[in-house]
Design a protein around this nucleic acid. Structure first.
Lengths: 212, 212
DNA sequence: ATTTAAAACTGAACACCGTTTATTAATTTT
DNA sequence: AAAATTAATAAACGGTGTTCAGTTTTAAAT
């Protein structure tokens, strides 16, 4: 009777087991240190077995990608409470940076690595729904700010892109070890965080001045 | 007599030959499609030979990294002619975006990939001189802008970081195929360029407003 | 000119990687 | 109990970066 159902459950369980192991290895060793073989070993199955549940490695990473977006959305959840759009915008940036610095590998997967995007492009149903949704949240917030006199005369979409570009650029540089110039010190994570915070504070100060 | 000198010349020539082949393959096939074996084949030597001239693959990429900075500096060369710092700043951004979109693989190597930075970290003499220098150019330009009434009251270094973060973020998103939301269209390079230009125009408009 | 020392180069191997296929083992259906 | 279906795997394929014991080429010394 319920044998078919059980099999489906088993299938999903196995998928999940694979993903969990992948996620764990991913956090421990970073993106390009994970191999199908290491995942297979972790779940105590042969490497070939994984191919019964996933088309290829990219599909696994795409699944992790979606999972990562779940984490990001969760981090953004509390912000919906903030009624004032400009305050919300500022807190969004803070939360975004916080997310990126505490989950650098995940951020890398979500916004820097091209593999998940490339896999997406092969999916026929080619669209980055998670990305679209997240960007729309930003868009609405910016629109709210404009209704309160910020950024007037500037296109909402372009302004949102400016903000996203800045925040992403800051996080990307921070994560990828490309901030070393700013002489204060080198390679010390504490210091990099400090630079990122200072930079973000300055950006906020800029935005403040754009109120008419 | 001059045999030692000739040998040294030969050694450098070989290094250069390897680098040239690497650079060519790099432009043709992209970063992670280059293998030492393909480089070896291109120069018609055995893979093992390469290890007589480079410690490992990362050292090759670090050399390409430096070479890429040479290209970037060259692209920035004409800008020194522009006396007005704010005009120069705006053209710098334009040139930077131009460079990134026409040489995406090089940009990727210079500012996104972590491998060259990681190799650098193992170099004892650990410092990113090329990066430092380029950032200093930006810093001086921002300082010039401030002397003309722009961004007053904002820290020069932080302001420079804001600008670099924005431009880098824009380029990184453009290159890495993460711009697809902005609904106008999908995956069309023309459109991505357009979005980048619009975003940059908006950023410039923002900066314009920050004159006291 | 011949031997010797050194430098340049390479074939073959090692330990990995993602992926495919033929085969075996387990389970469900008949 | 037999047949059919499903699940799992061992083994192989073609690829990767890297190492090292040898060979070949070159220069120096005799």
């Amino acid at each position: 009777m319920g044998v078919k159902e059980r099999k489906e459950r088993d299938k999903l369980e196995m998928r999940d087991k694979i993903l969990q192991s992948a996620h764990k290895l991913f956090l421990e060793k970073g993106f390009d240190q994970i191999s199908l073989r290491s995942i297979a070993e972790a779940i105590e199955y042969s490497p070939a077995t994984i191919y019964l549940y996933f088309k290829d490695k990219n599909e696994i990473f795409h699944a992790l990608h979606q999972q990562g977006f779940g984490m990001l959305n969760q981090a953004f959840q509390p912000l919906t409470q903030i009624a004032n759009p400009f305050e919300r915008l500022k807190e969004m940036g803070k939360a975004y940076i916080q997310f990126a610095t505490t989950n650098p590998e995940v951020y890398d997967l979500l916004f820097i690595r091209t593999e998940p995007m490339e896999h997406l492009a092969t999916c026929l149903d080619d669209q980055w729904t998670e990305g679209d949704r997240a960007f729309d949240v930003l868009l609405q917030t910016v629109k709210g700010c404009q209704q309160q006199g910020y950024f007037v005369g500037l296109d909402t979409q372009n302004m949102s892109m400016v903000i996203w570009s800045f925040i992403h650029g800051l996080c990307a540089l921070g994560i990828s070890k490309h901030i070393s110039h700013v002489k204060e010190a080198r390679d010390n994570q504490m210091v990099i965080d400090e630079i990122m915070n200072n930079t973000y504070d300055t950006f906020k100060a800029m935005l403040e001045r754009l109120k008419s």
